[in-house]
Write a protein that binds this DNA or RNA. Structure first.
Length: 114
DNA sequence: CGTCTGACGCACG
DNA sequence: GCGTGCGCCAGAC
């Protein structure tokens, strides 16, 4: 997995992993934390995404949801509905801020990347 | 260096 | 199945 990182800081790794999430797919905070070598640091992933907007590169933070498929980060976008709308525009069905078919849309870096 | 802070996750009741 | 409590750990101060 180190081949995917240009830098080793925790934040950078979060950003770079999130950028690998394909359009129409979503991942979870826990899965990303585990992938970058800090299982249990799911909260840090969310915190890192808070600063994702300040990054020079685009970070699709809207494709990261919690393990239930809930758009727990919606309040951190310009508007509460922005996150849901962006996902729906990418083909992800959302119902009341919840990804409808997580099994179908879930993208696990631990399995997809090697 | 001690504390506080979370866009989380899990264990429990 | 839902609410509550707590451990998690990198970074800001």
């Amino acid at each position: 997995m180190s081949q995917y990182y240009s830098e080793n800081s925790f934040f950078k790794r979060v950003f770079e992993t999130v950028r690998l999430i394909p359009v129409g797919k979503v991942s979870t905070y826990g899965a990303i934390a585990a992938f970058i070598g800090s299982p249990g640091a799911a909260r840090m992933v969310g915190w890192a995404l808070n600063k994702s907007g300040a990054q020079s590169v685009y970070v699709p933070a809207h494709r990261v949801v919690n393990r239930n498929g809930l758009l727990s980060g919606k309040n951190h976008f310009a508007g509460e509905r922005i996150m849901q709308e962006m996902l729906e525009n990418e083909g992800v069905k959302i119902d009341n801020y919840m990804v409808k078919n997580m099994k179908k849309h879930f993208w696990d870096p631990n399995k997809e990347l090697k």
